[in-house]
């Protein structure tokens, strides 16, 4: 390790930690009551599901399907036919600001609270 190595590592660490602290502060301020899961397909909001209502829906985009389950105040993708399975591995999300993304199917599930989790994200 040389001096510039240390500077680079420290720079990345400081930036990442600062952004994470900023984001988690915004998350705490948001209210988890009346949280809804907004589902975006191809950047377009297609569903808005209240998290206190259990249900299961099958989302079929032109690229494949994702089975989405709302239960116990959280939302998760229980099954999908994509190769990466990242969305299934993401598990259940319940807090405002949390997200589940399925990149192959261009699907984003974002939880929003009573208020916006953060006004804006800046880096």
């Amino acid at each position: 390790m040389k001096r510039i190595d240390v500077i680079i590592v420290a720079l990345i660490l400081v930036c990442a930690c600062a952004a994470m602290t900023f984001m988690s502060a915004g998350r705490r301020a948001a209210s988890a009551d009346e949280a809804t899961a907004d589902i975006y397909e191809d950047g377009v909001l297609t569903h808005s599901l209240p998290l206190d209502e259990n249900r299961e829906i099958l989302l079929s985009t032109g690229r494949g399907y994702n089975r989405v389950v709302v239960e116990d105040g959280g939302i998760r993708v229980s099954d999908a036919d994509c190769r990466s399975q990242t969305c299934v591995h993401s598990g259940s999300k319940a807090l405002p600001g949390d997200m589940i993304a399925c990149l192959p199917h261009r699907l984003v599930i974002k939880i929003s609270g009573g208020e916006a989790p953060y006004d804006a994200i800046t880096y």
Partner: peptide
């Protein structure tokens, strides 16, 4: 994804 919120994954 046309969703700037994906930036939250970066940190």
């Amino acid at each position: 994804l046309e969703n700037i919120g994906m930036l939250a994954y970066l940190p």
